[in-house]
Simulated scan of single mutants.
Amino acid sequence: MNSRCLKAIYVVYFGMKFLISSGNCQTCFDSSNCPTYAKCWRNTCLCEEGFRRDGDVCVDMNECTNINTCSRNALCVNIPGGYSCQCRSGFRTVGTHDRQCIDIDECNQAAQVCDRDEICQNLQGGYKCLCTGEVCHPNAQCRIEERGPRCACEYGFRGDGITCHDIDECSSEMHDCVAPQKCENTAGSFVCNHNNACSITSLRLLNMLIIVTLCSWHRNF
């Protein structure tokens, strides 16, 4: 309990409590004579633990901006009269102690986090999925070939698998659009537009090119 006391004289009138005087320390008979978050202790109003005096009231102390015991891998969350520690992403608490956070080894979890052809490398607060010691580009996959695993860009992209760039089928004439259709490049593919009436979309699946045509007709009455 905070050792700094509050002077507060209240009177109760028809069930309502009114502050009629305040200042330094004041004798109290019970906690009903004290402000909110203060208790009467040895006839003196004292702020509860986690609160401090501010004039004639007790206000919450933000432990997160001062001294707290959260580990560096945890976030301090202020609550009235105290605080809690929440582990950052990739970390977990030690038992029931929320002040300490240790790394989660995602590579040793029951659920597999990487593809079967990739190697999982644990990091502090995270992990990496490696293919031959490298991290494949988001538009690449780790493939097992005769010479061993390697990163290979997906269809519609080109590169070494570590870096992949979109192939512009429209500018490189690698499309099936015919006049008056207009070729529009998309990530990993392309779209054929025809006067806003027909839309031809190409879908790449393995080595097959599937053409889907969507048309709309408008009838005037």
Rank of each mutant, 00 (worst) to 15 (best):
K7L: 14
C131F: 02
L75G: 00
T44A: 14
N33M: 08
V135S: 11
F29G: 15
N2P: 00
T65Y: 09
R88P: 01
L206C: 07
T65N: 05
M174G: 04
T69I: 13
C45F: 09
Y37C: 02
N62C: 10
F157H: 05
Y37I: 03
N122I: 00
V212G: 00
N185R: 04
E184F: 10
Q109W: 03
H97G: 04
I9T: 12
I144P: 00
T27Y: 13
P35T: 04
M61Y: 05
C131R: 07
F18H: 05
Q141I: 07
H165M: 07
T201F: 02
C170E: 03
V212K: 12
I144G: 06
A38T: 10
Q121L: 13
C120W: 06
C164N: 09
F157C: 00
T65K: 07
T201V: 12
K7Y: 11
T213C: 10
C70P: 06
Y13Q: 14
C153A: 01
C40E: 08
S189H: 10
C28N: 13
D105A: 07
D56W: 15
C85K: 14
M208P: 02
C170A: 10
F190R: 12
E48K: 01
N139S: 00
F18N: 03
L209D: 07
N62M: 11
G50C: 09
C177P: 00
D54P: 01
S31V: 07
A197W: 01
C183F: 06
I20F: 10
M61K: 05
F221G: 14
G50S: 08
C198Q: 11
E48P: 05
C107W: 05
F221L: 15
N73F: 02
D176R: 10
D168F: 02
R72W: 01
N33L: 08
G159M: 03
M208G: 02
L46E: 15
Y37H: 09
A38V: 09
Y127I: 00
H218G: 00
V59H: 06
C40P: 04
S71C: 06
E146T: 15
C25K: 05
R147A: 12
V212I: 10
K182G: 06
C198W: 00
G156P: 01
T186F: 03
I67N: 03
C142R: 12
G161A: 12
C101Q: 06
A111S: 09
T69F: 13
E169A: 13
N220A: 13
G126E: 02
I67P: 01
E146Y: 13
C76S: 05
N78R: 04
N2F: 03
R52L: 07
F91D: 04
C151F: 01
M208T: 15
G156K: 03
C40R: 04
T132E: 04
D54N: 14
G95K: 13
